[in-house]
């Protein structure tokens, strides 16, 4: 509690608009770097990189957990068309000291983002072009080879997902605002496919290979503008033609609340509760509470 008080007291100086961290953020952005929790194509938006102290409700364990993903650069194609195709390499580090589920994984890979059509917009004055769809698809894919230092194996994952975006009231991606025009909320639905190749996942010297389809719903809600953010992220995943010992149906829900001190949106402290079958925890049931220090660049 004392630490929390010190953190909040010092925050405006340390994390304010002109702080070293904000300047570092700007420098990294200028170099086309981006730092977030992950770029695995499943839950990348607005999820900052974090170091967390976690409590496992299913065991007496308390432990530390690190999620860090860095987008290194971007290559943009189709620059003269009505579409956009972006490729970017990424590296990620995921580490957990939970004695019942130790993790230490570094992965690298290539992701892509494809916007096939433009997006129409309401309230544009006449005379300027307003081409595109009212509800447009946004497609993202990722490939990664992951070194699992605990099991001493290389794992592989391929994923692709489609979301929908709109500027029209109540549709996905629409920005809800209050009377003062502060950002209140937005949401995105997803549907996707994943392929996994995971050696030693259940049995030694046996490699599990399987595909999943998933649907996901993500909500980003600011309870207090520029200060308190609430995220709700639910995924229902199903393994196709399952012949492994893993459950076929794998729902998972994560809810989190973050506090951003000093009127900035880079550094935050927060609490996250996760319950469900986690792809990062051998597809086993997890029930975790996390106290997090997070950085989003």
């Amino acid at each position: 509690m004392l630490c929390l008080w010190v953190f909040i007291t010092l925050c405006p100086a340390v994390f304010g608009q002109d702080s070293t961290i904000i300047r570092l953020k700007n420098w990294l952005e200028e170099k086309n770097f981006s730092i977030q929790k992950t770029f695995d194509g499943s839950r990348n938006e607005n999820k900052p990189a974090s170091i967390a102290f976690q409590e496992n409700h299913r065991s007496p364990n308390d432990f530390f957990h690190l999620d860090l993903g860095i987008k290194l650069s971007e290559l943009e194609l189709l620059k003269n068309t009505g579409s956009s195709l972006l490729f970017y390499p990424k590296v990620e580090w995921h580490k957990s000291t939970d004695s019942t589920d130790l993790k230490n994984k570094i992965d690298g890979g290539l992701n892509f983002e494809f916007i096939p059509f433009g997006l129409k917009s309401p309230d544009l004055p006449g005379g300027i072009p307003n081409k595109g769809l009212i509800l447009a698809p946004w497609i993202q894919g990722s490939s990664s080879v992951r070194r699992n230092f605990i099991e001493d194996v290389f794992e592989m994952k391929l994923a692709a997902q489609v979301s929908l975006v709109s500027n029209y009231k109540f549709l996905p991606g629409y920005i809800f605002r209050d009377k003062e025009k502060n950002f209140l909320a937005r949401y995105y639905p997803y549907i996707g496919y994943e392929y996994y190749r995971l050696p030693d996942l259940i049995t030694k010297a046996h490699t599990e290979k399987f595909s999943t389809v998933f649907v996901r719903l993500f909500f980003d809600i600011w309870i207090v503008p520029r200060a308190v953010q609430f995220n709700l992220d639910g995924t229902y995943r199903r393994i196709i033609n399952n012949d492994s010992a893993i459950r076929t149906r794998l729902p998972i829900m994560a809810s989190s609340i973050f506090f951003y001190p000093g009127r900035q949106e880079v550094i935050s402290i927060g609490y996250e509760y996760t319950h469900g079958y986690d792809t990062y925890s051998k597809f086993q049931l997890i029930q975790l509470s996390s106290l997090k220090l997070s950085v989003k660049i």
């Binding site: 938006e45 956009s84 433009g118 072009p129 307003n130 975006v165 025009k181 502060n182 950002f183 503008p225």
Partner: peptide
């Protein structure tokens, strides 16, 4: 703040 255009929206804004 206050625009809060995320990566998805900025992609579509660029196309517009």
């Amino acid at each position: 703040h206050p625009l809060q255009l995320d990566n998805e929206k900025l992609g579509f804004l660029a196309l517009a």
